[in-house]
Each structure stands twice: as C-alpha cells, then as structure tokens.
Write a protein that binds this DNA or RNA. Sequence first.
DNA 1: GCTATAATAT
DNA 2: AATATTATAG
Length: 269
Amino acid sequence: MREEDSNWFSKWEEELPSPEELIPLSQSLITPDLAIAFDLHRRNTENSPQTLPQTTLPQPNSSAEFAGDSNGDEPARTLKRPRLVWTPQLHKRFVDAVAHLGIKNAVPKTIMQLMSVDGLTRENVASHLQKYRLYLKRMQSGGGGSGVGGTVGESDHLFASSPVPPHFLLPTSRQSSDHFIPSFVPISTQHPAAHLQQPSQFLHRQISAANFTSPTKATDQAMFLARQSQQQPVFRPASLHVHSQVANYTQDLELEAKTVLTLFPTRDD
DNA sequence: GCTATAATAT
DNA sequence: AATATTATAG
C-alpha cells in the first residue's frame, strides 16, 4: 500500500467544508428563476406541504455526481441539468432501495423516494432502472455459467460493483423483502476503476424528512437509511487522475446512523 | 470514431 | 411506468 493511503483520511477531513458553508445550499441559494427553470417549486409545494423542511434542490452540483465540465458558475438561464454520473455508491444505494422495496413496489418514484438523494430526479432513477433491468436479464440468460452468448462485458462494471439480491431474479415471487440486508462489498479492492468516489459534505434529507405521510412509512425509511449509514465509508481514489470534477455523492454515515438508531431503537441488527 | 451510459421521447 | 431512441461523455 502506498504511503498516501495512510493520510488520505486526514486530507479528506481537512477538505470538508464547515457546517456554515453547507447550510445555505439547502435553503436560500436557489433563485426563483432557477427554481422555475428546474420546475422544482412544484415538488416543494405539492409534495411536501410543511412536514419537509426540504428545499432540497436539484441544483446542479448539490449532491449527486455530475459529469461534464467543471463549470463552476452556470448561467441560470440556459441551464440544462448536468449529466448524472452513477457511482458505485450511488448505485449501491439504488440496489438496496430496490431490494428493500421488492420488485413489486420498485418503481422509479418510490425508489427515488427511498434513496432520498437530493438532486436525484425520477427520470434519473427510471433511466438507471431500465439499464439495471437489462443487466439483470443479461445476467440470468448468459451469465449463469453455461456460457451461451450472454457475455457480461466490461461494460457492466458499475452493476457488478453491487451484489444482486437473489429475489431480483425471481419474477414469480415478489416479496417486499424488508429483511434484506445488503452485504458490504469492498469495491476498491475488486475494481481498480472505482475511482469515482470522493467524500463530500451534505447529502440528502435526514430521517425527519421521512415524516411526511405515515409514521410507519417514515420509520420504515428510517430503518432503511440506517442500514445504509452503517455501510463502510467512502473510498478514496488511489490514482487521482480521475475525471474532471469531483464526485459529490456521499452520506453522513455516522451522523445519520446515530440519529436513526437513536430515534428508532426498535430493532437491532 | 466507437462504445458506454444517461437523457429524452414515445 | 415501461421501453425505445437519441444525445453525450469517455
């Protein structure tokens, strides 16, 4: 291992923005112009009346990772949403969400809600879900072992980074597997190309945000998020030749886990 | 210029 | 919401 690895964490820590820097982003940073342009205000008003303090916005570099240039200041007028980059972490969250919901309820909307990643749109999820389903098909047709033609090419690296829950492959039995516990997989060791993750600061709504609708549902989501939080933290790119911009997706693992577990000590894993 | 992947259109 | 098509990044 390199000597760099020994101090990557401290470097990471140093680069973390102070709380003061983070707060404004979720509230007042969005100009009305921008909000309209993104058609967000609708989500804010109709979806969450008052329970969600959220002003979680799909502001281009808010939370999820985006590809393209490192264009810091984007004119609020012609803006098109930057291309979303699905990192292994983000994908894992996606898989876990789907697994948790079960095939039955795993539709873009619900998946998106469960993931609770700000900046993530339903379209993002839908598109990814489509690809993922195709991947699953390829898996069970040719990837099983008796190699017909279904070669799992190099293109499925992302999907391979997260283990596919068993019940994904069983169309007949659709169970809302609440008990599904995602197993941790150290992608950094398996996939040299997994260099997309860079620690960041803020992320998604916290558990309290889940209080919209039923407490049961909120609790459920809380539990889910708790599990997510217990996963291993982010990895650092060994080689930093990475892409142009930094990946911004990350979760306040410890913080969230602590919160959730404190609020919902109903079950122990 | 080709392939992989996300966005958009149906 | 699901699938097909197009656009764009790498």
